[in-house]
């Protein structure tokens, strides 16, 4: 390696920082998960007690369940919506800059702000959704965020709005690298638009889409901001997610030991997923 002599010193500051703020905290959390540690109990070694409790904590298991429902359904919708957006705006010439800026906007908006916007859209009294559906019949207005199913759908909708644009931007970059001649040739051979998409375009943008998928899956499992702002887990913890549950245990409830066990679980779920995903599809992208 040409830069060998200075390679290590150059990497050192970042390495030190990563150890201090990522590696050490994760290890420390893992160790703390083996202790009873709260203002009530004091600090006391307890082996795997916290994990035993976690596996029997129905509330915890329900948050894991909804986290999976949320992540899988929102990412699936985002991939489809993202590709559709990219197809719609690809090769548009008039207003290209404005359209692209509009598509970036949801991605650039802070998640907290996106959550506020959607909370307002679904608002029971002033929400535009109620107005769009029921107009002046105020007695028909529904409290979307107060019912389990619609509250869950609302959070998914907010995420789909915000993250589809990320997928769209990556898909668009992929689309622009598809050689026109190929599509033209397929057209001359009589392939219809749908067929051209599935047999020419899609295989070519697949690597880019896989990277987008990887990023989205990992991000969706870490959802926190949307839940904190839109529902705080309500109604009846039906919209609580793993990170929100861990936050509740660790900070407001100050159950540091149990909260650490929850954190380790969240970490393991995401780590296993990311290893599995990187192994199956990320390698190609990384190797480039």
């Amino acid at each position: 390696m040409r830069a060998g002599r200075i390679g290590l010193p150059m990497m050192l500051p970042a390495l030190v920082f990563l150890c201090g703020f990522l590696v050490y905290p994760v290890l420390s959390t893992a160790i703390n998960s083996l202790y009873h540690d709260s203002p009530v109990t004091g600090r006391e070694y307890c082996g795997l007690d916290n994990y035993g409790r976690l596996l029997q904590d129905e509330q915890a298991l329900r948050t894991v369940e909804f986290t999976f429902i949320f992540a899988l359904s929102s990412v699936a919708l985002e991939m489809v919506a993202g590709v559709l957006i990219a197809l719609a705006i690809n090769r548009v010439i008039t207003g290209k800059g404005f359209i692209r800026a509009a598509v970036i906007l949801p991605w650039a908006v802070p998640t907290v702000v996106a959550a506020v916007m959607w909370k307002y859209v679904f608002n029971d009294q002033y929400g535009i959704l109620n107005y769009a559906l029921f107009g002046d019949s105020l007695e028909m207005y529904r409290a979307w965020l107060a019912r389990p199913v619609t509250a869950r759908l609302a959070i998914i909708a907010a995420d789909v709005w915000k993250a589809s644009s990320f997928v769209a931007l990556i898909a668009l970059a992929g689309l622009q690298s598809v050689p026109r001649e190929l599509l033209e040739a397929a057209r001359i051979d009589g392939a219809k638009a749908v067929k051209r998409f599935f047999f020419v375009t899609l295989p070519l943008i697949r690597p880019a889409l896989l990277v987008a998928l990887l990023f989205r899956v990992m991000d969706a499992f870490r959802v926190f901001d949307l839940v904190y702002v839109m529902t705080q887990g309500a109604p009846a913890e039906k919209t609580s997610v793993m990170q929100y549950f861990g936050y509740l245990k660790m900070f407001p409830e100050q159950q540091y030991g149990y909260g650490s066990a929850v954190s380790v679980l969240v970490f393991l779920v995401i780590a296993l997923l990311s290893v599995a995903l990187v192994r199956t599809m990320g390698r190609r992208a990384v190797a480039k």
Partner: peptide
């Protein structure tokens, strides 16, 4: 480069909660 970048990418996916408690105490 592949394995090193793979590690870096994995590190960028750490859930905040898994480091929050320790970082807070620090």
């Amino acid at each position: 480069r592949g394995p090193v970048l793979g590690l870096v990418l994995a590190a960028s996916m750490f859930p905040q909660i898994s480091i929050a408690g320790a970082v807070y105490r620090m």
